[in-house]
Design a protein around this nucleic acid. Sequence first.
DNA 1: CAACATTAATTGTATCAACATATATTTGTG
DNA 2: CACAAATATATGTTGATACAATTAATGTTG
Lengths: 154, 154
Amino acid sequence: MRLEDEIKQSHFKSEHHKLMINLLFTTSWLQRMQSSFLRPHDITIEQYNILRILRGAKGEKLSLNDVSSRMIDRASNTSRLIDKLVNKKWVIRNICPNDRRQSELLITDKGLEILSNLQGPIDEIIEQFSFISVSDTKKFNQVLDEIRNINNPS
Amino acid sequence: MRLEDEIKQSHFKSEHHKLMINLLFTTSWLQRMQSSFLRPHDITIEQYNILRILRGAKGEKLSLNDVSSRMIDRASNTSRLIDKLVNKKWVIRNICPNDRRQSELLITDKGLEILSNLQGPIDEIIEQFSFISVSDTKKFNQVLDEIRNINNPS
DNA sequence: CAACATTAATTGTATCAACATATATTTGTG
DNA sequence: CACAAATATATGTTGATACAATTAATGTTG
């Protein structure tokens, strides 16, 4: 459905204005969709994201800071999110012997298993993007990268 | 900066996978940017959004349901958000005489004033999109509209 | 028109997040 | 080496959000 119809707004000030709203609206929609996939597995998007980051480390231990800096939503409370993953035995947290301020975080086999169970459903969502040509997708990715070059005002 | 560098992920399974992460990441970034603009004015993005919806009604009274269905984040608690706007005297809420279950919501002059004060800063953010050609912008908007055609699984 | 279903909005509750602050550890400097 | 600054993480508090349950009003149907 056209954005105009979805949010019942008859026109936008400009295509650029529409793009802003459309990004917010569509991404929120994608997030809800992912959430609804993940909920039955007792995991939130951000927890899933952290597990993927730890898997990406391929056995290397990451600090909490490493994880935070790789997160999609720059997390203010990564600490408590990790707590939950540790409780579920999906992540191991040890104190780093070289710098006792740091954590050493490692995904467990059980965590890896959860991830591989979720791979299918998540890939399914992304397969729905396949109507977008690869060259358009690349272009879109470049534009999104450029958008983030805007200087942060604060 | 390239997404790969921002979230320190060396490669993605496909351009489509990257697009998904990039949409989540960039939109989250845009939201934070808008928040930081709005915070000094004591208004949140969703409150701002509701005011715009009510302004868009051009004097017509909307029900709470009307507002919800036009919102970007389909809000589970529009009711309490409206409470806050009513407390700030930016919105008037009356009981609809024809159907006493419904509210009649109307933006006040003070609410309109707030909106016009915020127009400038928000437009500034969107002006940063001007590097994207209008035809590309249209294409992206179409792509985003199509993405939402994916059937919702739940 | 009485009983039930539906609709609109509100409220309860538990979880989650942002922001500021605190604690513990390490680093740098005179 | 003492002491301030910087760093890594954790926590307190306040406010937002999701989901379910509730209340109140209206529609529907035998």
